[in-house]
Design a protein around this nucleic acid. Structure first.
Lengths: 245, 245
DNA sequence: CAGTGGTCTAGACCACTGG
DNA sequence: CAGTGGTCTAGACCACTGG
């Protein structure tokens, strides 16, 4: 029940995490390799299970391992590098299979539901409606992001009736003659909410990257507002910018 | 010593965090307002201190509160929005005071120390040297980022002897006639290492945003490689991109 | 010196999975 | 049914700060 001497300066769990991290990196442990359980670690390092647990939780937050109760803790895969606004294109470039699972599609009017924010971003009036899609995006069958996309209803009649398992931007081009030309986005680090964690198959309160995007067409109209949530342990973003003078 | 019924579906600490989050948002608690201590919460909610602690740690990871032992837990400030490659410029735009604290400046040759990686990024040969700076960047006196910047030595003779408290890009322009024109960057979510946490005055293993950047000049030579680490709770990035066809 | 968060112990019960 | 991680208890000692 008593705590022992605090002889060394850095906590036990940090040292245990460092040793496990070294094992993963130095021995090039393959992704999905099973790690020792919390109880095994607590015996090996002669600490309580809560301390062993802290070490594994640190490694998880770093993206080195992932946890799948009640199966165990496993070595994680490296991150996928994305460019703004092109989940499908980036998958193509990497030679991987991208797909989308429609969660919902609806027309939004009035306030609330993100409709107000979307209308503002799209430069619409208060009584305009928007068409909205929420889709789970997967790469090689693994869920990586949840995209919520808003289009002005006036520009996209009938879009809600189309199957939305592929590229929405492709649909805009082919069906509505709208060419996306540039995007402006904000990227930030967030904690994922409960629903997102479920959908993305990560544990509660995992770290995520929020990308909020406005996309403009050939006439420089804002034709898309999107709020995309990515798994922070699996995604990185590549961006380019010209330097302001 | 025994755990109680697990009657409701969501954990106690999530509910406690939700209630505290609501207090902060609904009552518009001012940044730096003192929150209840772990011991106070454990009494109020009739849970053990470890459970109250879990709730506060969740709020901390969300950026709603920050902790300053042994003073207590406080309401956090909102995030600052950055553009790629312009700490000083963005501070100007926001009407805030930016500054830099030089941590070190040196010439790097041979392998290791990030020199190999910097040379590769800058397109240099193995026997070229690079000039490197590490600086703590502050806004209104608050540390927000640690920048590590590499320049080809051949292009920047004598740069190590200049005071580096201001804009390095300004220095390049005025002293070396180098105009930065565009940047390519990768943004990802990381866990901050021990030294970075110390410098940025956040707790061990806090979440950070890593921005790795290459910047090109008027002749499209890569003249800068940078590895910048931002506090995830205080920074967001605004980027723009043209759509690939 | 009172009070804080950080770390740690040595247990407990839970839902859930795969063999 | 054995084993996992998730949650939780009821304590403990620590370094450190501000009054």
């Amino acid at each position: 029940m008593a705590a022992p001497r605090q002889s060394s300066r850095s906590p036990r769990y940090v040292g245990i995490a460092a040793e496990l991290r070294e094992r993963i990196l130095d021995e090039h442990l393959a992704p999905h390799t099973l790690m020792p359980s919390e109880r095994e670690l607590s015996e090996q390092f002669e600490v309580s299970r809560m301390t062993a647990r802290q070490a594994l939780m640190l490694l998880e937050s770093e993206g080195h391992v992932y946890r799948r109760p009640p199966r165990g803790t496993f070595v994680a895969e490296p991150r996928v590098r994305f460019q703004i606004g092109s989940f499908s294109a980036e998958a193509d470039r990497l030679g991987r299979q991208a797909s989308a699972q429609l969660l919902w599609a609806k027309a939004l009017a009035g306030a609330g539901n993100g409709a107000t924010r979307a209308r503002t971003a799209l430069g619409l009036a208060d009584d305009d409606t928007v068409h909205a899609f929420r889709r789970l995006r997967l790469m090689e069958g693994e869920p990586l992001a949840i995209e919520t996309t808003y289009f002005p209803s006036a520009l996209t009649p009938g879009i809600l009736d189309v199957e939305a398992e592929g590229s929405l931007w492709g649909l805009l081009r082919e069906r509505y003659g709208i060419e996306m030309t540039r995007s402006v986005a904000v990227i930030e680090s967030i904690v994922l909410d409960e629903e997102s964690c479920d959908r993305l198959a990560v544990r509660a309160a995992s770290s995520g990257i929020l990308l909020t995007r406005r996309t403009f067409d050939q006439d420089d109209r804002c034709v898309e507002f999107a709020r995309d949530v990515y798994r922070a342990d699996r995604a990185a973003f590549e961006v380019s910018a010209s330097v302001a003078r």
